[in-house]
Design a protein around this nucleic acid. Structure first.
Length: 463
DNA sequence: TACTTCGGCGCC
DNA sequence: AAAGGGCGCCGAAGTA
């Protein structure tokens, strides 16, 4: 930890005090629900195991491993599928073995993997989440996760015992099963406030690309929708939520974090079938791309340049456009920032923290952006926890923090005051504190009904 | 038995 | 030239 200014030191000091308060207050958990759900999930797991054992593949499994056969062993499954059955596995692990992942299993197209993946999901929910949370609940029914400021290389926080920062949310089934366990105190409601596009805004404070500023300032513009359109050669109106999500995750953020067109092309192409991506009239995007002259994905080997008229070649063109035409200033900043690092062997965040030592290019670009975005959240947390809640004599308490969001537990009559306070701290006061924040910051809020679990949170309109 | 490493996967 | 940043937790498998 290398804070290079009094102000940077103060952020960590006051941040630690705020997080200690969050840890002490904790979050209420429904133990009865957890115990009942563990029983329920255990039955579902037993049923899934039965279905797996009825499959032909399990007979091969027994023949090959006999008494050692273990459904939980990915290594064994890999040997059966990719050695005995001779199926193709297009991903390797670090040590060169076939990678047995959700993706490579799905690629086999075997009916067996549907049951197997459901089984694995339930195992994950039961062990990491249901048991993992229940084990840490205190005698009063509260959870007190630890928030660390001395672990992450980026100057972010981390969280453990249990990790409150990786509770399922994207998978609807897992989200329901796990978030149902988190409750507000009696008579209260849970609220989650998060920075919109925190890392994009943080990055822009470094590179100042005018096109990115325009995307942030103008609510009518949408970078993810635009890039989704270009990747799949669609009209603006053809981009639905699913397609936009693919462009965002498989192109834009991948590119920001240092991935490249070959990986993007594979992910975006496979997503068409896996997620059933269609135009509004029901045309599959594969068919749509064929009409645009793209019939194949391309070799995607990374060795040779992509063959013409392949999807790979198209995504390479999108990548060139993205960095050379759309965000040239961002691209130049990346080159300059890295060159300066090579010269000095160090760099600093805008919030006043230094990095030293051997780091690769991707880390040199990503660390300051990630750390700075978190420091916005941490500063906001110090204001609300250490100062404003007490000053306003409010009963609302912060229950947790997830990198760019703050979860609170408070009485409904304080809800609108709390949201107004958070909006003031997170979007206005912070820009007086750090005047180098030269893009507007905005927040979103999710609110669960009074007495309802975290699984029932829904978008909340703030005035 | 206790510990470490690996592969995998949950979140931002 | 290379090719996804950061975490914590789990079970399996290997080692002491």
């Amino acid at each position: 930890m290398l804070p290079v200014s009094c102000e940077a030191y103060k952020l960590i000091h006051e941040g630690a005090i705020a997080l200690a308060q969050v840890e002490a207050d904790g979050i209420r958990v429904d133990r009865k629900y957890l115990r009942a759900e563990i029983t329920k999930v255990s039955i579902d797991i037993a049923n899934a195991v039965c279905r797996i054992k009825e499959d032909k593949i399990y007979r091969l499994w027994i023949r090959r491993f006999g008494k050692q056969a273990n459904i939980g062993s990915r290594q064994q499954l890999g040997k059966i599928l990719f050695e005995d059955m001779g199926l193709e596995c297009c991903q390797r692990t670090q040590t060169g073995r076939p990678a047995i992942t959700q993706e490579t299993l799905q690629d086999t197209k075997l009916p067996f993997v549907v049951d197997y993946l459901q089984y694995q999901k339930l195992i994950k929910v039961r062990s990491t989440y249901l048991y993992g949370i229940l084990r840490e609940v205190d005698p009063d029914g509260f959870l007190h996760p630890f928030y660390n400021l001395h672990i992450a290389q980026t100057y972010r926080s981390s969280c453990d015992s249990p990790n409150f920062q990786n509770i399922p949310v994207r998978d609807e089934q897992m989200m329901q099963m796990v978030r149902r366990a988190f409750l507000p105190r009696p008579g209260n409601q849970l609220i989650e406030v998060d920075y919109s596009g925190a890392e994009v805004a943080s990055a822009t404070c470094y590179h100042h690309d005018p096109t990115m500023v325009e995307y942030i300032v103008n609510p009518a513009k949408d970078m993810h929708r635009d890039m989704s359109r270009f990747c799949y050669m669609l009209k603006k109106s053809d981009v639905d939520k699913k397609i936009r999500g693919c462009g965002k995750g498989m192109f834009v953020f991948s590119q920001f974090y240092g991935s490249y067109y070959v990986k993007n092309a594979i992910a975006l192409w496979d997503a068409i079938d896996e997620l059933g991506l269609c135009k509004p009239d029901g045309t599959s995007l594969h068919k749509h791309l064929r009409r645009k002259g793209i019939r194949e994905r391309g070799a995607c080997t990374g060795g040779e340049p992509p063959a013409p008229k392949t999807f790979e070649a198209h995504i390479k063109a999108v990548e060139d456009y993205f960095w050379n035409d759309l965000f040239p200033v961002y691209a130049q900043w990346k080159r300059d920032w890295y060159a300066e690092y090579l010269r000095t062997a160090s760099f600093e965040t805008l919030t006043g923290f230094r990095f030293e030592g051997a780091l690769d290019r991707k880390k040199v670009i990503n660390y300051p952006i990630q750390g700075t975005a978190f420091h916005w959240l941490l500063w906001s947390l110090t204001q609300v926890v250490n100062k404003e809640l007490a000053k306003a004599k409010m009963r609302t308490r912060v229950a947790g923090q997830i990198h760019d969001s703050i979860v609170s537990d408070g009485p409904p009559e304080e809800r609108d005051d709390y949201l107004a306070l958070m909006n003031h701290i997170m979007t206005k006061a912070i820009r007086d504190h750090w005047t180098w924040i030269d893009v507007p910051l905005t927040i979103d809020a999710d609110v669960a009904p009074v007495g309802a679990p975290w699984s029932e949170k829904a978008k909340y309109k703030m005035e």
